[in-house]
Design a protein around this nucleic acid. Structure first.
Ligand SMILES: NC(=O)c1ccc[n+]([C@@H]2O[C@H](COP(=O)([O-])OP(=O)(O)OC[C@H]3O[C@@H](n4cnc5c(N)ncnc54)[C@H](O)[C@@H]3O)[C@@H](O)[C@H]2O)c1
Ligand SMILES: NC(=O)c1ccc[n+]([C@@H]2O[C@H](COP(=O)([O-])OP(=O)(O)OC[C@H]3O[C@@H](n4cnc5c(N)ncnc54)[C@H](O)[C@@H]3O)[C@@H](O)[C@H]2O)c1
Lengths: 250, 250
DNA sequence: CGCGATTTGTGCACGCCTTCACAAGCGCCT
DNA sequence: AGGCGCTTGTGAAGGCGTGCACAAATCGCG
């Protein structure tokens, strides 16, 4: 995750208060904000109005000091002695993440995995809308999935403009992923979520995130291996795991 | 990712050379090893025998210095002036990740996503084998998917012992995930891959990894938001993205 | 046999992130 | 009105990870 700071020393003090000229959030913080957001929604549905950093941290599975520092980067939206106003905090985080504007997403590769993704309601419930499905296989084109009709990949440039698609999801085999990425970029997509197990090469202004199931399993496998070799050793210590979390029964 | 070092200062010099008493690998390194492994397999199929750190780094999308440091943690398996022996390195990484022994995996929740996962061949090709599918819905129990029959979740304890399942995959709705996790743990599973958008509470010796699609999209959304607010600002600089990668056409 | 080209392995410095610990601030109760 | 308990926001310290830059090692060639 090599990062490059965009040295905008623009004070931003001359602006009202709507757009804080963009808080230069640490990448690690950004990655946790969605988790906080989900926890806040859960808590809000539970009927609470405010929540302490301790409580929210527990619900999100992080250290409370870390949570406070993360939130402090957004500004001061807590009240000492009380906690954070849940509704207000949700609003702020959603604003920072850009979730206040619904983002159009397209999905390329309607196979095994693509089918599941197309039918996933976890998209819409968080501000994303799948506006188009693409595939290269003529036998899939025309198929209707969850109200959307699968289009041929060649229609991507046209549809991308019509729908102002900014985010593309790649669920094709690895061999086709780079070509699809190139087409997405050419069509103006600037963020890609890649499920294919391969490295994508894209221009510097395009963001790529990868989800690789096999990698996750291999990491777990390593820890299994480690734990096994530990228990087999003399000092039969009860190995302490990695990546454990706090409760939030939901 | 709070880690705890298991201070085994056990020299291990009294062992032949098979088990290096366990290298205390940085977590960040572990997360990259699977990527190296995939790149190595690709390169090997391409007919190459050796590969330089520069070449492998490009194929894996990382810095070459980082790659060398990562590999140096495993021991010295490269030859100066030449590079790394691909076959040997594959063997070593697979050993460290514990992929030399096939690991039994069970999948709980055969819904939309579970179906796709059950039919994914990326498991078997990397040393994992799905040995059981579970669901709580009676109408799904008995269904055959890719040669496996869906069993009722109540059979988990029995099957887990029979098949020595160490890794469980949760693909149920979030509301059921904690209960499923508890059952997995009770059945002896010590590693969990969780697709449900919620925090799981597990004992310290159990490892949990989470894959949350919505979080990935929200992170991308943030970067979209940032990019948009940058291009709207005076100095129209071509924003440099985050998390870009090198080529590996495959 | 020696030399230069090449590439690994790593010491080192820097920056990011995490965590502790505590002062400052807020509300409530008396 | 004042004090007290609770919680936030943050300074500082330490650890981890990254990447540069280079010495050490190896190969091939003349
Ligand atoms: N199935 C899973 O559970 C799973 C899990 C993790 C990762 N993955 C990865 O996701 C990807 C898709 O997996 P899958 O099981 O759905 O595969 P799949 O073969 O079932 O589906 C791939 C789809 O992509 C389409 N396609 C191929 N080339 C294309 C192109 N150039 N343009 C547009 N569409 C194209 C195919 O027609 C097909 O419909 C693979 O890279 C796989 O490794 C899958
Ligand atoms: N579909 C996707 O693309 C997608 C993507 C990312 C994350 N997810 C998450 O993955 C999970 C599953 O998604 P889905 O779309 O497959 O949902 P789904 O409703 O289609 O499937 C859930 C399955 O879990 C089973 N189940 C429910 N309670 C159970 C229990 N206690 N024990 C065993 N099985 C139980 C149900 O019978 C059902 O078959 C959800 O948490 C979802 O948020 C889904």
């Amino acid at each position: 995750m090599s990062q490059q700071r965009h040295g905008s020393t623009s004070g931003g003090s001359d602006r009202a208060n709507a757009v804080p000229a963009f808080p230069d959030l640490p990448e690690a913080t950004i990655a946790r904000l969605p988790e906080y957001l989900r926890a806040l929604h859960n808590l809000g549905e539970g009927g609470a109005d405010t929540i302490s950093s301790e409580g929210l941290a527990a619900a999100a599975g992080v250290n409370s000091a870390k949570l406070r520092k993360d939130l402090s980067h957004l500004g001061s939206y807590g009240t000492r002695g009380v906690g954070y106003d849940i509704a207000l905090l949700i609003e702020q985080i959603e604003y920072v993440l850009g979730l206040d504007q619904r983002r159009a997403v397209c999905l390329v590769g309607v196979g095994n995995l693509g089918h599941a993704l197309a039918g996933y309601d976890g998209f819409a419930s968080r501000g994303f809308k799948i506006v188009a499905l693409f595939d290269a296989d003529p036998s899939k084109v025309g198929e209707r999935i969850h109200g959307l009709i699968v289009r041929h990949i060649d229609e991507l440039p046209q549809v991308a403009v019509e729908e102002t698609i900014a985010i593309g999801v790649i669920a094709t085999p690895a061999g086709a992923a780079q070509a699809v990425a190139d087409e997405l970029v050419a069509a103006g997509v600037t963020s890609i979520l890649n499920f294919a197990p391969c490295v994508l090469s894209v221009p510097a202004n395009v963001d790529v995130r990868k989800v690789d199931l096999a990698i996750e399993l291999q990491i777990l496998s390593f820890h299994e291996h480690r734990k096994a070799s530990l228990t087999a050793l003399p000092g039969g210590r009860s190995a302490t795991g990695a990546g454990n979390q706090e409760a939030v029964g939901s």
